[in-house]
């Protein structure tokens, strides 16, 4: 958006433009390939991505010994049992349920009927969670919808 008056730039010392352009295109290509490679490598590392499933999907399709799963469900009332740091509870999606065990601290919003996302491994019977997040619908909405 400049006027022609600013065309006072001299290019006297510039190397041939085609060669210079080639240099920059190669440079840009290398950077792009590096970034794409970096993203691809990071995506393929264990723990980077996890299958995100409902309880029914977990029961129906997850192979025994499935690792890196995230399962989403509602805590079944009365199912929470704590012993020291270990907690066992059941989550359901209304059709199936699964028992979750964890030795990790649980979030404040974790209670009967709260919606949780458990990350961990499934051995075919119980889900061993390395992390439990309460997907609290009342985070901003103070009135509980659960």
């Amino acid at each position: 958006m400049q006027t022609a008056s600013s065309h006072r730039q001299s290019h006297v010392n510039a190397p041939p433009s085609a060669k210079r352009r080639a240099k920059f295109i190669i440079g840009a290509g290398v950077v792009l390939a590096t970034v794409v490679g970096l993203v691809g490598w990071a995506m393929s590392r264990p723990g980077s991505t996890a299958f995100y499933v409902s309880v029914s999907e977990l029961q129906a399709s997850a192979p025994a010994g499935a690792e890196d799963y995230r399962v989403n469900g509602v805590v079944m009332p009365g199912s929470i049992e704590r012993r020291g740091l270990d907690t066992t509870f059941a989550i359901t999606d209304g059709r199936s349920d699964v028992t979750v065990t964890t030795d990790q601290p649980l979030p404040d919003a974790f209670k009967d009927r709260s919606e949780v996302v458990a990350t961990g491994n499934f051995n075919g019977r119980t889900f061993a969670a390395t992390q439990v997040l309460a997907k609290c619908p009342s985070k901003f909405k103070a009135k509980s919808r659960a």
Binding site: W41, A42, M43, T49, A50, F51, R70
Partner: peptide
């Protein structure tokens, strides 16, 4: 947005965790 893209294209729901972002 990868989780959305993956779900729309392959029907598989995935989540991308901190491990990915930290690695990059």
């Amino acid at each position: 947005v990868y989780p959305i893209v993956a779900e729309v294209t392959t029907g598989v729901r995935l989540s991308v965790g901190p491990a990915f972002f930290n690695a990059v």
